[in-house]
Every structure is written in C-alpha cells, then in structure tokens.
Simulated scan of single mutants.
Amino acid sequence: MSEVLTKSTARNIFYGGSLFFFVIFVGLTAQSRHYILTKGTDEAHLTDSVVRGKRIWESHACFDCHTIYGEGARFAPELGDVMKRWGVEKDPAGARETFKSWMKAQPTGIPGRRQMPQFNLSDAQLDDLGNFLDWAGRANLQGWPPRPSKTN
C-alpha cells in the first residue's frame, strides 16, 4: 500500500492549516485586546492630569534614562512603581510632596553619581507628572518587570 501525497491533498493541508492558525491568531488577538482594556488599564483613574503627565514624560524624554514597565534606557531606576515605593498608598499627599521636592532638588551633586538634570517644571507640571507615575503604578503587570529578590 503506497501512501502518496497528491497535489490536491497537499493544497488542502496547506489551506486548512493556514485557516486554522489564522483563526487561532485572531482569537488570541481578541483575547489580548479584551484583557488589556478590561484588566490591564486603570481607566477609572485616567484623568486629564495623567494625560498631561504622560506628555511631560515624553516631551522631556524621561525614557532616555528611566524605564517604565521595563521599557526605556535602563540607565536610571525603573519608575513604574516609584509612587508606591514612596508610600502613595499610605500617605498620597506626602508621597507627592516627596516627589516634587526630589525633582526640584536635582541635580544633587553627590560625588561619583550620575546626575539627573533640572527640568525647571512648575508645581502644576510636577503634579501632573506625579499623577502619571501614580497611575502607571496601578497597572496590572502580572509581575513585570522582574525584580531581583532581596536576600540577606
């Protein structure tokens, strides 16, 4: 019994396989889009101030040095959760004031350390940037970017 793959059979396998994987691709794309829009974005807190803060982030090219969600230059610290690290959940006003004071104090002039430039942002711009960073920290990143564990 000879098994021969005819042109007709090969064509049917090609078209059937192509259709199968195209349907899988469309299904995964739809599932990803649904997840991002329903669980991945904190749309409830997406305000005009957050949008202005993102524009400040982009116009001053903060991503040239910092990362957010693991994207950026990796030259300076990750800022996706900076407001959480400064305690925005326990003391929102204190965390925002700490952020504003730190930004106004740049460059610090600490020897042996690379310096962040002074952008001379107004208080309103600093509030917007802080609101953007706070909003960015609310995203459900499912553990991304990975952080080294602290073991001592």
Rank of each mutant, 00 (worst) to 15 (best):
D134P: 01
V50F: 05
M83I: 03
L141K: 08
Q31V: 13
Q142Y: 07
D42I: 09
N131S: 15
R96K: 15
K90S: 10
F63P: 00
W144L: 10
A105R: 13
E3L: 14
T29I: 05
F14L: 15
R11S: 12
C62A: 08
L121Q: 00
N140P: 01
L19E: 06
F14D: 04
K104I: 04
T98M: 10
L121Y: 00
F25P: 01
R11A: 14
A76F: 15
R85G: 02
T151C: 08
R55N: 14
G72D: 02
V51F: 10
I110V: 15
Q125H: 06
Q142P: 02
N12A: 15
R74G: 07
F132M: 08
I68V: 15
K90F: 04
R114K: 14
G80V: 10
I36W: 11
S122H: 01
W144R: 05
Y69M: 14
R52N: 13
G16S: 11
D134R: 11
G130L: 02
A10L: 15
R138L: 03
A76D: 09
S8F: 01
T47S: 15
R147E: 10
F119G: 02
K39Y: 13
Y69N: 15
S101L: 09
T38V: 08
T6G: 08
P111I: 12
G27T: 05
